[in-house]
Design a protein around this nucleic acid. Structure first.
Lengths: 229, 229
DNA sequence: CAATTAAGATAGTATTACTATCGTTTTAGT
DNA sequence: ACTAAAACGATAGTAATACTATCTTAATTG
């Protein structure tokens, strides 16, 4: 894969920002340093004031880009899923067999990218651990219905819908395709979190990505896919 | 099942409170009204000050029981899992077949209890939706390791370990028992959340608990359990 | 009946999550 | 080159949050 990635502009739902951070250098600094600061201190200890000090701007300036810190997190996670959807599109474009397409899709969605093996967005790498650690916090609030109306979860839903189509093509009788795929996506995040913090809640296999094997086995057996490809 | 439940005292890790709320009437009011208030306004909008006003006490008095609102949530969720572990113990005690034991355990752990069919703790009922909506928030990235050391997740881990044993008895070759069961538990919560707020991420089946069927199918196929019991 | 404990009353603090205003600099269009 | 608009910095302010501290009174226990 060539480096078309760096020139591609990931579109994020316009309701998630007041002023597009990609439109200015300050905006980009807010996003880039915001990502690393959230990773350093955790989302609950992250404030716009601290970020402003770090990038030598003011709190007020950051508020010109984002309404509140929660929509900043939503924005980042949407950017992440936007990149994943884009990769999904290009990396499965030339695959016809739905089973191989599903395997590849699962890999794109759930794997922790290894920059030595595959070319990925630089930002995807830095966002991955943020998604693992913080994404469970975005949904479960009283604001979820309003945010959903505003399209805050539409990329995520569209990715799930895309994989659901593949599952239906592979096994039209399986009754829970959306449940299966959203379970795997969510599980990918929390199992990776467990691995680092609550290892008794997960399993590891030496030198392998245990989660990917687990997920593949799960998919093969639940959808009754037999044989290797 | 008789009403031994109301007389049973669920033990919660002592590091999660400063003064045991079960030891006084005020403590019980804090817990009972705290549960309903968190459900009404959501955990982020819940404050000890509001709770104090509701139960006609003072903020300072609540702080004599709980160090902070986060440990209050941890306490409640631990109480929930304590009840589940207790139910697990008594409801599977007289079952010998590990497969039937596993099925029963899964039901206890993941089902939404129906008070018309089964006798459950009153508090379990009121805590269930709190666990569904808020439990993803307890894993605060930066504090999780310290809390884990203090035993804040030990009941949860012990429940997972208990089911892992059953899985090993059923299919000793399955390599990911802990992953499978913790995935199902976490999925139970977020799928029920999706059902209410992001229905495109889940599937429903009329008049049935779709999640339980999904989980049962998953378990049967991944562990290669064939035949009905 | 004294001593301890529990709880109410009140005050105070640092921080958070913003909003508002105003002046200066930069950029864009003509 | 000039003007208008937009962007940004600087500063101030606010209500609410998440606590801590202290003091007094009421209830319980030995």
């Amino acid at each position: 894969m060539e480096d078309l990635l760096s020139t591609v502009d990931i579109k994020v739902n316009e309701k998630l920002f007041l002023k597009n951070p990609t439109s200015s250098e300050l905006g980009m600094r807010i996003v880039n340093f915001g990502i690393s600061m959230i990773q350093e201190v955790g989302f609950e200890n992250f404030t716009f004031k601290k970020l402003a000090a770090r990038i030598e701007t003011t709190e007020a300036s950051i508020y010109r880009y984002f309404e509140c810190k929660h929509s900043f997190l939503l924005y980042l996670i949407n950017w992440y899923w936007g990149m994943i959807e884009y990769r999904l599109l290009i990396e499965t474009a030339n695959i016809d067999d739905p089973i191989r397409k599903l395997y590849k899709s699962l890999h794109v969605i759930t794997s922790v990218p290894n920059p030595e093996n595959e070319l990925v967005f630089q930002r995807e790498l830095s966002l991955k651990s943020l998604v693992i650690n913080e994404s469970a916090k975005i949904y479960r609030t009283k604001a979820v219905d309003k945010e959903n109306e505003d399209g805050a979860y539409s990329v995520y839903k569209s990715i799930v819908a895309r994989i659901v189509e593949l599952i239906v093509a592979i096994n039209p009788n399986y009754p829970y395709p959306a449940m299966l795929i959203s379970t795997i996506i969510e599980s990918s995040n929390h199992q990776r979190f467990f691995k680092d913090h609550l290892p008794k809640l997960t399993n590891t296999v030496s030198n392998k990505d245990a989660f990917e094997h687990f997920a593949l086995d799960l998919i093969n057996k639940t959808l009754e896919i037999n044989g290797k490809r």
